[in-house]
């Protein structure tokens, strides 16, 4: 069923937009990070189950990674690990790199990134446009090859760099504990029954998971946390990690807050990515597709058992981040 609005509702929507715009004046691009909207995916819901998705593409860097990048840098500034003379360096599959570049530019830090050579052209261009220095690791070794290379670079000149190491840095899940998780509780409150998110560094699911586990519904129930990972070592879900065949991030400690790990086939996630465009008008990346596909599975299980539910998930970034630039477009770097 598609939403349709009577004239009075349209007028109310306009008033709300103006009110929201008035609240949205801010001092820095960094103030735009977080506080993302939740959108209801009505056209994908089975009866009796609400499906909500956090629009992380609405962050100024275009992805969920703005949150951990800002938190890791702010926390390191606060305790003195990051000083003005140091270059921020990390390995990334791209989105964290865009986020570091944006936060670094806004705060006046130099940034250097190690990425696998086959990250999307869009992400190489965006980071280079910010003035970030890029180093490429083997396209055959994925993000683990980038991790090994950044460790080598830092070990050769440790005083020159601040290496946040997003896979081991507790500020990464903390960003989601303080931000994403708290925002979801504030918006959906006691209705929330499930949270579903894919695992890359695992920052989102660990941070949101911990926050949601502290929340107790009036009926005494707790939120069920579902982590999504690719079903095979060789997969097409950029941004997600197949743990059994990867360097396992130190922040990934599922026993603390994850109730279920759901293996996701690439094809199913890609099909959901397509369906999201047609059904909801949302053009998102494949990791967001994986999150929604897993959420729909959880929703259908609930509906089959005749249970009600309210599921929240995350739309990590937009689909246009995976475009190849056209020949006549500006090239940076």
């Amino acid at each position: 069923m598609r939403a349709s609005y009577p004239p009075a509702a349209l007028q109310l929507r306009e008033e709300m937009a103006v009110r929201r715009a008035r609240l949205l004046t801010c001092d820095s691009v960094l103030d735009l990070i977080g506080g993302t909207p939740l959108i209801r995916l009505r056209n994908l819901e089975p009866p009796g189950v609400e499906l909500w998705a956090k629009c992380e593409f609405a962050n100024p860097g275009g992805s969920v990674k703005d949150r951990p990048a800002l938190q890791m840098i702010r926390d390191a500034e606060a305790d003195g690990r990051l000083t003005r003379d140091r270059i921020i360096i990390d390995s990334t599959s791209g989105n964290t790199g865009v986020a570091y570049s944006l936060v670094g530019a806004a705060l006046g830090y130099r940034v250097k990134l190690v990425m696998p050579a086959n990250v999307s052209a869009a992400r190489k261009q965006i980071t280079a446009a910010y003035g970030t220095e890029l180093v490429f690791s083997s396209e055959l070794e994925g993000s683990d090859g980038a991790i090994r290379l950044v460790q080598k670079i830092v070990a050769a000149d440790p005083d020159r760099y601040f290496y946040p190491d997003q896979y081991s840095n507790e500020s990464n899940p903390r960003a989601h504990y303080l931000g994403t998780g708290a925002e979801i509780v504030a918006a959906l409150g006691d209705r929330l029954t499930h949270f579903v998110a894919g695992v890359g560094t695992s920052g989102t699911v660990m941070g949101v998971g911990r926050r949601l586990k502290e929340h107790r519904r009036p009926d005494g129930g707790r939120v069920t946390v579902v982590a999504v990972e690719p079903d095979d070592a060789l997969h097409g879900l950029e941004g997600l990690k197949h743990m059994a065949s990867s360097i396992v991030p130190r922040i990934w400690r599922p026993a603390e807050c994850v109730d279920q790990i759901l293996p996701m086939p690439t094809e199913e996630a890609w099909e959901m990515t397509e369906r999201l465009k047609e059904a909801e008008g949302l053009f998102v990346g494949h990791s967001a597709g994986a999150n929604v596909a897993a959420s729909v599975r959880v929703a259908q299980d609930l509906a089959r058992r005749g249970e009600r539910g309210c599921i929240a998930t995350v739309l990590c970034d937009r689909g246009d981040r995976y475009f190849v630039p056209l020949r006549w477009e500006t090239c940076y770097g």
Partner: peptide, 10 residues
């Protein structure tokens, strides 16, 4: 000949 998969994680 190179076989190149997607990029995992982060």
């Amino acid at each position: 000949v190179s076989i190149v998969p997607a990029i995992a994680g982060g």
